[in-house]
Design a protein around this nucleic acid. Structure first.
Length: 563
RNA sequence: CGGGGUGUAGCGCAGCCCGGUUAGCGCGCUUCGUUCGGGACGAAGAGGUCGAGAGUUCGAAUCUCUCCACCCCGACCA
């Protein structure tokens, strides 16, 4: 492609609104432009990269037996009513004003709609259905360029199976395909166990890339590879030691003492001798949560344990339930379900609220004084704690979610009536899985991982062009002649070449644009070296450069591109 | 949705506090000439509803109010 005839509006200066590296470079390289918050146009160069990513995804999805669909983005609202997700998505779903339609934020309902009409027998399965298509989500706050938009491209896939064993097979196929996709795209990623959130289901994994631009927080173990979203991650942290002798319960006057720190200061005790109470409302019933010391309740973990949404109790509810305000609530004689974090397991000689304002109780023995106490892991892990698997120090950092694979189970088939007959003629709901990849995020993550202060650094796999040919002075006949010849030769050999043939751009301008655009190889044709019958080749990634005779150029480039 | 910030030429900004010529600067753009291997130089140009609307005033980019857009932090987020 001749640059002089192309629309590649590069920017020397950094646009005001861009903060994240990938966003800045995509704008500067003339690959995207914003239309509105979270809505981006891909310009020709950017769209070439999109197509490369999509091709890789398609190849790997086809390789596991996926069949590509193209489903409508415009959906009748009533289909979404069947699963209750109009309400579940709430404001995140776009609604049309002049017809009862919504813009699809994902496609489980549409897949299930087609499945229930056609997939009626166990003989029809397994199926893997996928598409690469635009999704719409009314994000409250789009950000970071193409990383979080209101309109974005997603590869979404769905598996239909007759049993959970078969779902496991489909799930593993996707896991493998995803690894190949991200490997081929040149991404350094890791896989974490994740919370299933509002999708429902029995298991899920997220494919993540470490990045300051990320919106998820992840605990990661360098030595064994353990990784978990902090919503679900666990660490090895000391539980309290049970004392040999349990003291008597003792009520203590603690005027105006609310927090654990105040309590420790007042009683001259350590925070690990304190059990902090939090009251949540689940299914309109109170649940008292006990945490050790200053550990905070991880609400995601709690919701998972309870199996549904929770909310913190209001101050007046707390008062009515316990007779005390937030700082003085405790487990002893609490009337309702009590769950304690594992760190408190069978602890004794603990201090906690007395359910009476300005009083705490000491000498609590959980095994003696809190009957029917349940224990589970409810903490959020912190950096520096020990890995649950190998004991090394955990790192906690932010990351971008690239892909997510889910075992959905029967949530959608059940609510929408997608049933099949098994070998015994018995009717069962289809067992489903759902698998997503954010296409733009692959590009953004790639850039976050592959750039320098000059600009983008494309690997040949995703590069919009393999070679950037620079004719340094398009007013010199010999330069034009040689560069044109090289352009024709390389193009003829099937190499994608971006030919900077701009007449009015000076050498330095072309060098900088080439580095910004970041094609893997640059071929520089200038009068100076032509006089010695040489052109220059520069490898963008390493900065390495050498001179070569034009007649040897094509073979040399082929060799470089193939290794 | 809460908090903070910004909005002036295609891009980056100054001017605003303290109202008063024709609204400036750099880059980019057009024309001509020179230059031509690391973002050239000279000359002459084009380009603006100062985010929108209302108000105060003899007079508003500047003061007041309302709205809108965008960015950041948070909440939220399959």
């Amino acid at each position: 492609m001749r640059l002089s005839k192309s629309f590649v509006p590069t920017l020397k200066e950094v646009p005001n609104d861009a903060v994240v590296t990938s966003h800045i470079l995509l704008l500067r390289a003339g690959m995207i432009r914003m239309l509105s918050a979270g809505i981006y146009s891909f310009l020709p160069l950017g769209y070439k990269v999109v197509k490369k990513v999509v091709d890789i995804i398609r190849e790997e999805m086809d390789a596991i037996g996926g069949q590509e669909f193209h489903l409508p983005a415009l959906n009748p609202r009533e289909i979404w009513e069947e699963t209750g997700r109009v309400e579940a998505f709430g404001d995140t779903m776009f609604h049309l004003k002049n017809r009862e339609y919504v813009l699809a934020p994902t496609h489980e309902e549409i897949i299930t709609f087609h499945a229930r009409n056609v997939v009626k027998s166990y003989k029809d399965m397994p199926q893997i259905w996928y598409q690469i298509q635009t999704k719409f989500r009314n994000e409250a706050r789009p950000r970071s360029g193409i990383i979080r938009g209101r309109q974005f491209l997603m590869k979404d896939a769905y598996s239909l199976d007759t049993s959970y064993e078969n779902l496991d097979i489909s799930y593993k196929l996707h896991d493998g395909a995803y690894r190949k996709i991200f490997d081929r795209c040149g991404l350094k990623y890791f896989v974490v166990g994740a919370s299933s959130g509002a999708m429902g289901g029995t298991g899920s994994e997220e494919f993540m890339v470490k990045s300051d631009a990320g919106e998820d927080t992840v605990a990661f173990c360098e030595s064994c590879g353990y990784a978990g979203n902090v919503e679900v991650a666990e660490s090895k942290i000391d539980a309290i030691q049970r004392n040999k002798v349990s003291k008597e319960l003792k009520e203590i006057l603690t005027p105006n003492i609310k927090s654990i720190d105040e309590l420790c200061g007042f009683l001259k005790i350590d925070e690990t001798q304190c059990a902090k109470s939090r009251v949540y409302i689940f299914n309109n019933a109170p649940v008292l949560i006990l945490m050790l010391g200053n550990d905070e309740v991880n609400e995601t973990k709690l919701e998972k344990v309870l199996g549904g949404p929770i909310r913190p109790g209001h101050p007046d509810e707390l008062k009515a339930l316990t007779g005390a305000d937030a700082g003085s609530i405790g487990p002893v004689d609490f009337n309702g379900r009590i769950i304690a974090d594992l760190r408190l397991k069978d602890g004794n000689n603990l201090f906690s609220g007395a359910n009476k304002n300005d009083y705490h109780i000491g000498g609590i023995d959980l095994t003696r004084d809190v009957p029917k106490l349940e224990y589970t892991d409810l903490r959020t892990v912190k950096a520096g704690e020990e890995c649950i698997r190998c004991g090394s120090k955990l790192d906690v950092f932010s990351a971008i979610e690239l892909g997510h694979i889910f075992k959905l189970g029967t949530k959608y088939s059940q609510s929408m009536g997608a049933m099949f007959l098994d070998e015994n003629g018995k009717e069962n709901p289809i067992i489903m899985g759902s698998y997503g990849i954010g296409v733009e995020r692959i590009i953004a993550c790639y850039i976050e991982q592959h750039h320098d202060d000059k600009g983008l650094i494309w690997d040949k796999t995703l590069a919009p062009f393999k070679v950037n040919l620079l004719a340094l002075n398009m007013k010199k006949e010999n330069v034009i002649e040689e560069a044109d010849k090289i352009y024709n030769e390389l193009t003829g050999a099937g190499i994608d070449v971006l030919y900077d043939d701009r007449v009015d751009a000076q050498a330095g301008f072309k060098f900088n644009d080439a580095d910004l655009l970041g094609m893997p190889l640059q071929v520089i044709v200038g009068d100076k070296k032509l006089k010695e019958n040489k052109v220059e080749v520069k490898i963008r990634k390493t900065g390495e450069r050498f001179d070569i005779e034009p007649s040897l150029l094509k073979d040399k480039l082929m060799e470089l591109l193939n290794r």
